[in-house]
Each structure stands twice: as C-alpha cells, then as structure tokens.
Amino acid sequence: MHTPDHHSVPTPLPAQDLPGLPSTAEAELFDSIIIGGGPAGLSAALALGRSLRRTLIIDAGHPRNRFASHMHTVLGHEGLPPQELLARGRSEAAQYGALFHQGSVREVQESTHSSGPRNLVVGLDGGPQLFARTVIAATGVADQLPGIPGLAQRWGKSVLHCPYCHGWEVRGQRLAVLATGPLALHQAELLRQWSDRLTFFSAAAEPLDEAVAGRLASRGVEIEASPVTEVIGEDERVSSVVLQDGRQLPVDAIFTAGRLIPHDRYLKGLGLEREETAVGSFIKTDSAGRTSHDRIWAPGNISVPMANVPMAISAGTMAGAMANMTMVAEDFDLAQSDSAA
C-alpha cells in the first residue's frame, strides 16, 4: 500500500506563510487552538477571529489535495489551485488576529489544574505544551492506495477519486474504475455519466453478483476481472494498464478509492467516541461537528471522510461558531458564579 501523504514530490507550504510560535504562547491561554490549516480549520479560524477570540492554528503544511492542480465544484472558486485557496484563507484569518505555527501535535489531553475552568493541553511534537479553552481538530485524512507500480505517482493528475472534482476534465475519454472493495460498484455506476468508454477492473470486488454484472453491462461498462499489476504512462499521465494475465489495455484516466486513514492519533488518549463506517473508523460528531468531548470539535474529513472542499468549509464555520457559543455560555456562567459568591 502507498500513502500519497508521504510522497516526495509536493512540498510543504513555505515556512514564511506559517510563522514560528509566538514567544508568549506558552504563557497564555488561547480561546481556541485549531489543529490543521486546511479549508475546515481556516473556516473555523475565520468564525472565531470575527468573534474576537484568541486563536492559534497549528498546521504541518501537507493538505490532502496538494496533489491536485485545481479545485472544481467549489462555488466562487471554480478552477482555483488548492494552494491559492489556502493562501487566501490564511490571509483572511490573519486579518482577524489568528496566529499560525508550522508544526504537528503530539497529543491533546485534559489540564490537570483542579481550580478554575476546564482547559485542554496541546502538546507539540518536539515543542512546548500550549493551553486552550477549546480545540478544533481539522487534520483530515490520508489516502492509502493499492501498491500497484505507477499508480501513486499519478495521484491527483490522472489517477483520481472524485468525479465531481475531476470528471469534466476527462469526460468522454477512456476511463477506468479500479476497485479496492465492494464500494467501487457505486463509483463504476457514477463514472458512466462522464464517459461511455468505461472499464471496471473488478478484482478487489469479486465475486460479482450476476445481477450486478448485468446492470453494469446494460450501459456498456466493460468488466475486467484480471488484477491490474502496473500503470504505464508518460510522466503524470496514464496511457495503459498491465493485467496479471499479461494483457495491456489503453486507459486515459483511472478512478479509485484508497483506504482512508484519519489523522487523529493525537486524540487517542481522550477516548472519544468513534463510528465504524464502510470506509473505516472515524471520530463520531454531532451535526455541529462536536465530538463526545464537550470542548473538542472535529470538522471536515477527519470525521466525515466523503466531505469535499465546500462541505469542509461549511463544517469548519459551524465548528468555530459553536466553539465560540460554548465559551460565551461559560463566560456568563463564570460571571454569574462570581457575582453570587
């Protein structure tokens, strides 16, 4: 298996875009620490900043969609490069006082202080511990692809996963769906909308039910049960695939779905509730993105694996607003308690 998050070609965001930790950070209590500076995290930061909240964004600089050159089906930003959206988002969040740090988080845990309001401790990898009233975990997922030679190096270019993101650009071409499990049947049906030249490499979904095979064949989808052993092409472009039985078939683009690995290891010690889905185990959240911990939200792909960029933006905005509302209520509770005392 190959995880594109560890691919060596795309580079992290420039260090100057994600400055060092403020010198006062260890001594202060942030209203919110946002872990992850993608669309969900930046949207949360914007909502919190406009609510006059002291916010820190910790980002490793490896967004999931950095392998793609352009975003699509993002209203108002159609065709915009993903890095451009992040640059705009960082600039907008900074206008409202958000601080940035390039790095990763080792763990999040409860504060051991017994007096005063409950806070969270955010431990940085190779760095200090920081304190926050709320935490928004927006670190997304990694795509772990089958270990087929030539597949991972073309991820985001001609090896794709979302037809709504990339289907228009390859419409009418020789498309293929490479099954990684039974869920690929849905992808095979979906891709038929973009091309009538579609091959379904079904090895990982076999044995196919006769009725399912007939359904795909009814719309002209070719089914190839022999496993794919290699992807061939010039640079980032696919030209053909080699099958285990020795045949070589021409293909212009491959759609596949890798195993999704949520970046949530730093939350393990909190015992958050999880939800088992068809694509893996993910942190369970409510409709506002709140986890089973009343001070932690997890918007975007870290909890909703199929969320695209607009959905992540919406979830981040909601998480930021709800984190602010939680602190608003707490501020009144504490003021009322002090007044009564």
Rank of each mutant, 00 (worst) to 15 (best):
V170F: 15
L190P: 01
G172E: 02
T199G: 05
A176N: 05
L191R: 02
V228I: 14
V238S: 06
V170I: 12
L216W: 04
E210P: 00
L183S: 08
E222N: 09
A203N: 08
V228P: 08
V177Y: 07
A203D: 08
G220Q: 10
T180E: 07
A204H: 13
S218P: 00
R171F: 00
R237V: 14
Q193V: 03
D235R: 14
A213L: 12
A211T: 10
L175G: 01
V221T: 15
L178H: 05
L178N: 02
D209P: 00
T229P: 00
V212C: 00
A176R: 01
L178G: 01
I223D: 06
G220V: 08
R237S: 13
L198Q: 00
D235E: 13
Q173C: 02
R219A: 11
R219F: 12
E224R: 09
G233T: 12
V231M: 11
V221L: 07
V221I: 15
G220M: 13
A184C: 05
A179G: 06
I223V: 14
F201D: 05
G220E: 13
E230F: 04
I223Q: 04
E230G: 06
E210K: 13
V238M: 07
H186F: 12
E230A: 15
A188K: 01
S195D: 02
I223C: 07
T180Q: 07
E169T: 02
E189M: 10
S218V: 06
S226H: 06
G172W: 03
W194D: 03
P227N: 04
P227D: 00
L191A: 08
Q187D: 10
L185K: 05
G172C: 02
D235Q: 15
F201Q: 08
S226E: 07
G172V: 03
L183K: 00
F201L: 10
I223Y: 03
S226Y: 01
R215A: 10
A184I: 04
E206F: 06
R174L: 10
A217E: 15
A203I: 02
S226R: 04
V212M: 08
A179V: 07
E234V: 15
P182A: 15
I223P: 04
R215L: 13
F200H: 05
L208S: 10
I223M: 07
R237T: 15
R174A: 12
E230K: 14
L190G: 00
A184Y: 04
L191W: 11
S195G: 00
R192D: 05
G181V: 08
L178E: 03
P182V: 14
